[in-house]
Design a protein around this nucleic acid. Structure first.
Lengths: 145, 145
DNA sequence: GTATATAGGATCAATCAAGTCCGATTAATC
DNA sequence: GATTAATCGGACTTGATTGATCCTATATAC
């Protein structure tokens, strides 16, 4: 599973919104410029985030995006899966019907384990924590638990 | 990082070779038929495995492929990386120059951690163990340590 | 020398990623 | 209410990648 650009942009956008939550609605253009995201493309990404219930979109003048999920409850996993779909590492696990071989299952177990680990790692990281670490600056990082 | 078909075929091929190691050189056609791999495509995959020093290829009549790495020492990681290249989950980690943003590093740490976990899981699985589990049949699996 | 079998380069169709364009729509403001 | 600001959302483009297949060259057993 590869994190696409769209997924990366989604994380950046939400990071910005998390760090400026007190300001409410923030324009797409501001976010795009601050976080180096093509503005039009951000529009696409934002639509998906809105459909997933992560942000709210306000159209018209003074419109923009607003976080409607608490950053403490927003995990990287939900962000990535809202954009790129469910994480899977190979076709056979995602679509069992694409692989009718019965005896590769020992291999599948390994991939299943790897997938679970990956999802748990992403599920264990909240936007709130990322925003906090960003605010502290890059010099003072901690790898976290 | 997505396991490609080529990677899946490589694993199947090596699994077959591991389970029939005593027979030495085995023809491409036999492997292809037994493991449901397009024969021509297996040729491409085999070339990469040979370049990585995992198998030896014998041309000509009675030619075929032979395992030259001990299955006990052959890990899923080395197989996958021989075929699909080094595992990475996003561009920014693979090519740091593609992302000159300084303050996404807290995010990068998470991806780095996930990547390391994934590689360790794959590195902890040998072809020997997979072959053994295959031999025992699917009904009697154990998730492993 | 002939039959057998892989090597390796070229090619191809399908899919996907990443992004752009543009008319439609919505909302604030004068 | 007209204007202006801003996003929506579908169509489109471009480039890369995947998953093959075809064909000629080459190597080997017999």
């Amino acid at each position: 599973m590869r994190l696409t650009r769209a997924g990366e942009y989604a994380i950046r956008c939400l990071l910005y919104l998390s760090m400026h939550r007190d300001r409410g609605i923030i324009g797409r253009k501001e976010i795009a410029e601050a976080m180096d995201i093509p503005a039009q493309f951000l529009g696409k990404v934002a639509q998906q985030l809105a459909r997933a219930g992560i942000i709210a979109i306000r159209q018209g003048a003074q419109g923009g995006y607003e976080l409607v999920t608490r950053p403490e409850e927003l995990t990287l996993l939900s962000v990535v899966e809202a954009i790129d779909g469910e994480i899977f590492l190979n076709d056979c696990i995602h679509r069992p019907e694409s692989c009718d071989r019965q005896c590769i299952c020992s291999v599948h177990l390994v991939w299943e384990k790897a997938r679970t680990q990956l999802r748990e790692t992403l599920a264990g990281t909240t936007l709130a924590r990322l925003a906090e670490e960003e605010a502290q600056g890059c010099a003072k990082r901690s790898p976290g638990p």
